[in-house]
Structure formats: C-alpha cells, structure tokens
C-alpha cells in the first residue's frame, strides 16, 4: 500500500467511524498461535459490558417490532376513548394516554416496527449500493472509478436529511413506485439514496488496498477471473469494517426517520411512528410532557442499542486496541 492509499483509507475510516485494521496493521508475529480475526473479536466482545447492554436492548426492540401485542399489555393502540385524553401514566397504563385517549404504551410499542423496518431496509440498500459501486470503482479503477467517485462526491456533498427531505416532499406527486407511496419503503429508499456513499468509499479504499497484495497476484497468476478475485479474495476483507458501519448506521437511519417524520415528510397518519408521536406531543409539552418523553426515550434507547453494538464490534475488531 502506498502512503497515499494508506492515508485515504484512514480518512474513510474516520468518516465511517470504523476501522479496517489495514491502515495500521499490527499483527503480533511473535505470538505462537494466530487466532482468526473473528475468534479474537468474539473473545473481546464477550468481555465487553457495553456490547451486552446493546445486544439485550437490540433483541428487546426487535422482539417488540415482531410481536408488539406481547409488550402492549393487552391494549390496542387504535382503541381510544376521548375521556382519557392526555391522562398521565398510572399503574394500569404505564405510559398514560395520548390526545385521542389511546393507550400510549401500546402506541409507542407498535411504533418500533416501522422504525426497525426502515432502519434495516435502508441499511440493506446502502450495503448493496455501497458494496457493488465501491467494488467496481476500486477494482477496475481508471475512468469507471473517476466517474463513480465523482457521483459519490456529489451525493456526499448533500446532507442526508436535506436530500431525503426534498425527495420525500416531491415523492408523492411523482410516478415512481415506492417513492410515491408515503410509506416506510419511500422513507427507507430516500435515506439509502442519500446515505450509501460512506459504505462505497469504505469498500473502494479497502479494495484498492488489498488489490495489490501478493495473494491477489497469486490468484491472478493462477488464472482466476476478475469477478472471482473480487468476490472470493477481496470482498471478504471488507466484511469487518462494513459490518461495524452497518450496525451503527441502522441506529443513525432510525434517528433520521424519526426526524423526517417529525418534519412532516416521512410516515403519515394513521401510521404509528415515534416521529409522529413526538410531533403531536410537542403542542402539549407543558401540560402533558409524557407524550414527548416516552417516544423520545424509546427512540433513543433503540438508536443506542445499535450504536453500542457497533462500537463494541469496532473495538473488538480493531487490532490497534490490543496492545
């Protein structure tokens, strides 16, 4: 790797909040047994309390999205009685009632599904775009790289929220399927479309860094095709940093979705979403602060679950941490 490549890789790592270990390899060759990266990482993860907090929270919210009935304590989020409007939390109804007199716990619990669907879908699209575009740009280089890198620069220069905001505002009046649906799919696609660049740069730098290594040269000498080299030899190297980035990004996307929905361009009523709940609760923040408090709290905990898992994963996969 040249100094400039190493520098680029470092910069991409900083931007993505992850590490590849390639930018500063520190394999301890004096050690007798060389564990694999993943078994070392798992050993490290197991001892990290932050990972366990994140994992437990993550599993908790995934279950909440899958079977909200279990968590709603028997209440139906759509069964409302105006007589209960804005009632404060009680032993019977832990989160109180919202403006329409709906059980708030049930509403907040049912909100998890949309957030997680959008978070996971958007990240899957980001990974798809990032890996494909990044691998092509990095491996083939030349003009293809120049064009793809410029396109990524263009998207990169637009703030995530801003790009998604414009697209979602315009979306419903266009004829493009999914984008014009005002549903979770539209939000996920909009966020992915303006958020794939970091993954792409990460994969690209990684591919460029590994491309010139001896084992790739060996594979090429043995007659392996370009695609085979990419898929079998180069991309597996990118799995670790991309995994860290993806985990954290699920959290980032969930926060962005709540923000867009709060701003009025994301999910729309009657969908159940934390962003909508925060927006509705804002009006009565002095009289019934619990209406903003609970969705905010659960939203934050969900984001935190993914950020903590990603952080722990990064620390575990970072050879620099093991001195």
């Amino acid at each position: 790797m040249t100094d400039q490549q190493q520098l680029d890789l470092r910069k991409d790592e900083v931007q993505a909040g992850t590490t590849t270990g390639l930018a500063s390899p520190s394999v301890d060759v004096t050690k007798e047994r060389q564990n694999s990266l993943w078994s070392d990482a798992w050993g490290e993860l197991r001892r990290n309390p932050l990972f366990w907090i994140g994992a437990v929270l993550g599993v908790f919210f995934v279950l909440m999205a899958l079977v909200p009935q279990v968590f709603a304590r028997g209440a139906d989020p759509r069964a409302c009685d105006l007589a209960n409007s804005q009632d404060l939390p009680s032993a019977q109804h832990w989160f109180g009632f919202d403006q329409q007199g709906c059980d708030y716990l049930a509403n907040v619990v049912y909100g998890a599904r949309n957030s997680l669907i959008i978070g996971v879908t958007a990240v899957l699209v980001i990974l798809l775009l990032g890996v494909v575009v990044g691998a092509i740009a990095g491996y083939y280089g030349g003009i293809a790289d120049g064009i793809l890198a410029r396109i990524a620069d263009i998207f990169y220069a637009l703030p995530l929220i801003l790009g998604a905001l414009v697209l979602l505002r315009v979306g419903p009046s266009t004829g493009i399927p999914i984008i014009n649906s005002r549903g979770p799919g539209a939000v996920a696609i909009a966020l992915a479309l303006f958020g794939w660049m970091t993954a792409m740069r990460l994969v690209r730098s990684q591919v460029i860094a590994v491309k010139s290594s001896d084992y790739v040269a060996a594979a090429r000498a043995m007659g392996a095709s370009g695609r085979r080299i990419l898929v079998r030899h180069i991309l597996p190297n990118a799995v670790a940093p991309v995994l860290v980035y993806a985990t954290i990004t699920i959290g980032v996307i969930i926060a962005a979705e709540a923000t867009l929905t709060y701003l009025g361009v994301g999910l729309q009523r009657p969908a159940i979403s934390w962003g909508l709940q925060i927006a509705a609760g804002q009006a009565s923040i002095r009289t019934a602060p619990h209406l903003v408090l609970f969705p905010s709290l659960i939203l934050t905990l969900t984001v935190m679950a993914f950020v903590m898992m990603g952080d722990a994963l990064r620390d575990a996969l970072d050879p620099r941490q093991r001195a």
Binding site: G251, I278, V292, S296, V303
Partner: peptide, 18 residues
C-alpha cells in the same frame, strides 16, 4: 459519548428546551 451519540438531535433539542 455513547449516550450523546445515540440521542437524536430532535430529542436532545426538546429536552434542552424543557
């Protein structure tokens, strides 16, 4: 820092105001 990174700006803004 883990805590702060996890709090969406939107939520933080409300709680700072409150």
């Amino acid at each position: 820092t883990t805590l702060i990174v996890s709090i969406p700006i939107l939520v933080l803004a409300f709680f700072a105001q409150l």
